[in-house]
Lab assay of single mutants.
Amino acid sequence: MPSETPQAEVGPTGCPHRSGPHSAKGSLEKGSPEDKEAKEPLWIRPDAPSRCTWQLGRPASESPHHHTAPAKSPKILPDILKKIGDTPMVRINKIGKKFGLKCELLAKCEFFNAGGSVKDRISLRMIEDAERDGTLKPGDTIIEPTSGNTGIGLALAAAVRGYRCIIVMPEKMSSEKVDVLRALGAEIVRTPTNARFDSPESHVGVAWRLKNEIPNSHILDQYRNASNPLAHYDTTADEILQQCDGKLDMLVASVGTGGTITGIARKLKEKCPGCRIIGVDPEGSILAEPEELNQTEQTTYEVEGIGYDFIPTVLDRTVVDKWFKSNDEEAFTFARMLIAQEGLLCGGSAGSTVAVAVKAAQELQEGQRCVVILPDSVRNYMTKFLSDRWMLQKGFLKEEDLTEKKPWWWHLRVQELGLSAPLTVLPTITCGHTIEILREKGFDQAPVVDEAGVILGMVTLGNMLSSLLAGKVQPSDQVGKVIYKQFKQIRLTDTLGRLSHILEMDHFALVV
């Protein structure tokens, strides 16, 4: 994948999101292997301009796509893939009243899908469409860049269908997702969380590099694949309309690839034109409109599966009536509230959605109805927002919020430890010299600072030695090549209790 991002070429006709291997024109390309080798690009942008032909009021008969309808489940399912879809609609009884809503608040519980998330729908649909058009064949390999849930859905379907599955996901995604993927037989590649989507090191860039190296491999490409919004247009939206008897006044959905909100909203605009569509985008993402909503100094966020630093091709923002931004604290607070007060075992993005819903639905009156999409299960986040310690460490809970008995030293300040200034190293000294210094002084790690004293990161003896043994660096290389740029900081005025929580999850903390 090139470091400079080429513009994806656009073909003359058809839909841009065809499933299957992508040609340089962004659509299915038939021909000899030699032709494909000559024409197939190194990668295709996940934010390529959409060429979708959908228009409100256009006859369904003019759609270029294969459409399906929700099917009634048999008493005995032939395999677990038949437990994807037909998820329950559940009334939220307490939270709406707590925040003064007059309307009825309903939750579409997508964590009841077989793999635990709304992404099971698009995973199965992308595979079925690729099999139907002859792209996927027995023994082929599926590769997908994902925040985890699409990966789980694909790995689940691949396990049943017999495909090899490789999932490329950023490091910030939970260990629970990784464990589930491994249990399903998927191979996992992790990428830096802070890598831009168009960087060769991003999950998108690495996935395309693997595709170019592995024979008979395919990126189904949830960011561009029409099967993504079509899955929701054909099934999720129809289920909502049936469950609500066609009567709903507002739908609120958090947005990642945009397939969920695009597919549902398009069908609702056709069948229930008075329904307002509300999009939820986390602070630090750029999906919301108008652009002024996205202006923030924050560039990272903890909530998973929603928000991006690019506009995915499948996201149709014209069908969203209003956007709201959400933050991590309210997302996790509301997710825990949904679990504790409503018994809905949902993930953090569901918290984002409901946090926005109780604001947006203030305009609705008694007798009206708001539906929220709860995308995934708490299963993926047992060591994250479900953990009091994690919430404390991230600053989303305060010590006084917890009532468990603490040891005698818990409320003492870090400054009472009488710490001395640490050994520091410059980023320009060599790895070999740094190892000598650390061994001589008896230290395992040291902060790396520039000549102005600005902290650049941390270097550890173990990481340097393993990097040297693996051949990633040489003793003569500058130590700046092996620094940890993500590390926890703590102030002298913070409590030892807070430091204790940090050290339970990290090997060190830097006192500043």
Rank of each mutant, 00 (worst) to 15 (best):
E239Y: 06
D129S: 11
K97F: 15
S227F: 10
P12I: 05
R209A: 09
G14D: 13
C15D: 14
D140W: 04
K269T: 07
V189Q: 07
K83R: 13
L136N: 00
D245H: 08
D133F: 02
I166E: 04
G185R: 05
K30N: 11
Y233M: 00
E213A: 11
I80D: 04
I95M: 12
N194V: 04
G258F: 01
A159F: 05
P78H: 10
P70A: 14
N216Q: 07
D133K: 10
E34M: 09
K39T: 10
H22T: 08
I92E: 04
D245F: 07
P59W: 07
P273F: 03
K102N: 15
K39S: 03
A8W: 04
D221E: 07
L105A: 04
K108W: 00
S61K: 08
R266I: 11
T236I: 14
P59S: 15
T235A: 09
S123C: 03
P192M: 04
C275L: 06
I167W: 07
A130P: 01
L181V: 07
K97Y: 13
P145T: 04
L56F: 14
R182K: 12
W43G: 10
M169H: 02
I80C: 11
I214A: 05
K97H: 08
R209W: 07
R190T: 07
S199T: 10
I80G: 12
D120M: 05
P21S: 15
A158S: 07
D86P: 10
G151R: 00
C244T: 05
L210F: 07
K82V: 10
H218W: 10
S175C: 09
K97E: 15
L28G: 10
S227P: 08
L248E: 01
L28V: 14
G115D: 07
R266H: 10
P6H: 07
C109H: 02
T146M: 04
M173N: 02
S19G: 10
G259L: 00
E144T: 04
K172M: 05
M89Q: 01
A38H: 10
G85I: 04
D140H: 04
A158I: 03
P145S: 04
T135E: 03
K137A: 09
H22G: 06
I142S: 00
E239V: 03
H66T: 11
T146C: 04
H17D: 11
T260H: 14
H232N: 06
A231C: 11
G116D: 07
